[in-house]
């Protein structure tokens, strides 16, 4: 007699924990054959707000970790995903993907993690400058993490799409609240299991499942979110989010990419979510004669 399958309950990922939605709501997710395969949490505005609190709390320690350390943690993510390949291939195939395509998507996702792991301790040198000012000052500009970023992940490519938008953000020291693909959230939320076992502190990446239609306005209007990244095609949602961003001068970015392309991974995506800070200091004048400063 064969053992009865233990089915997984899919939950949200907030602050390193796996809570159900506080709203108690769910929606049904089907596979390519239209069979219901999961009751997925339908995240509410309150879930989103809790996730922002977790992300803000995690920001200080994540953004001040050494770049090398962040790099190691991102590499660890790649190791963890590599080890769970089969699970992700299976979940992707349930969306109707062929085995070859599903394997390709998982492989590219692992590669993308390794790629951004490598950038963690290098983009500063690419985008930072020492500025030759005319006065007697030492002056340098450095990229610095923007803060808490709200991300609405691509609807297609639930694994590669999500990895491609989240990795450059956390590589750059930001913390993230990301809404997974609505139709195919299985492997997006399963990614939480990879993150939770990668030495990534709780709250650095928070994953919600649910509907962009319900949540996009909250992403854009939340006063403690520093920037948003919207990676879907709905022109109306884009416009609304861009408008609401003005409430606290949020930086808003809208990506539409072919995530398989080689240039879908690049350090300029890290730079989009960096602030440039410039520091000035006098050279050998302070405390000497006269009132130079």
């Amino acid at each position: 007699m064969s053992a009865t399958e233990i089915r997984k309950t899919y939950k949200l990922f907030i602050g390193g924990q796996f809570p159900r939605t506080e709203s108690g709501r769910y929606y049904k997710v089907s596979n390519a054959k239209n069979e219901v395969i999961a009751n997925m949490c339908l995240a509410s505005r309150k879930d989103f707000r809790n996730a922002v609190v977790a992300a803000r709390k995690a920001f200080e320690s994540w953004s001040t970790k050494s770049a090398f350390n962040r790099s190691q943690i991102l590499y660890r993510m790649a190791e963890m995903l590599e080890g769970r390949k089969a699970q992700f291939v299976d979940e992707l195939m349930q969306t109707g993907m062929s085995k070859t395509m599903a394997e390709k998507e998982v492989r590219l996702s692992v590669d993308r993690m390794v790629y951004y792991s490598g950038w963690c301790d290098k983009y500063h040198q690419l985008f930072g400058t020492v500025n030759p000012v005319s006065s007697s000052h030492f002056n340098f500009s450095m990229p610095e993490a923007m803060g808490v970023i709200g991300v609405i992940a691509p609807e297609s490519h639930p694994l590669l799409g999500l990895v491609s938008v989240v990795l450059p953000l956390i590589a750059g020291g930001n913390t993230v609240v990301v809404l997974a693909s609505e139709k195919h959230p299985l492997c997006s939320i399963s990614l939480a299991e990879v993150l939770a076992t990668s030495d990534l502190s709780g709250g650095v990446v928070n994953i919600l499942t649910g509907k962009s239609q319900e949540l996009h306005t909250h992403f854009a209007s939340h006063m403690d979110v520093n920037a948003i990244l919207y990676a879907r095609a709905d022109a109306k949602e884009k416009k609304t989010m861009a408008e609401l961003s003005a409430l606290n001068v949020k930086r808003s970015f809208f990506y539409e990419r072919d995530w398989y392309r080689a240039d879908a991974e690049n350090p300029y995506d890290i730079l989009d979510f960096q602030e440039i800070k410039t520091t000035w200091h006098p050279i050998e004048q302070i405390g000497t004669s006269g009132a130079k400063y």
Binding site: N131, S141, E275, T279
Partner: peptide, 22 residues
């Protein structure tokens, strides 16, 4: 966006200027 240490209100064409947040 700009931190002046032991100085203030210095500007230069080679030095980036601009803000965080609002």
């Amino acid at each position: 966006g700009v931190v002046w240490a032991n100085t203030y209100n210095k500007f230069d064409p080679a030095s980036p200027f601009g803000g965080y947040k609002e």
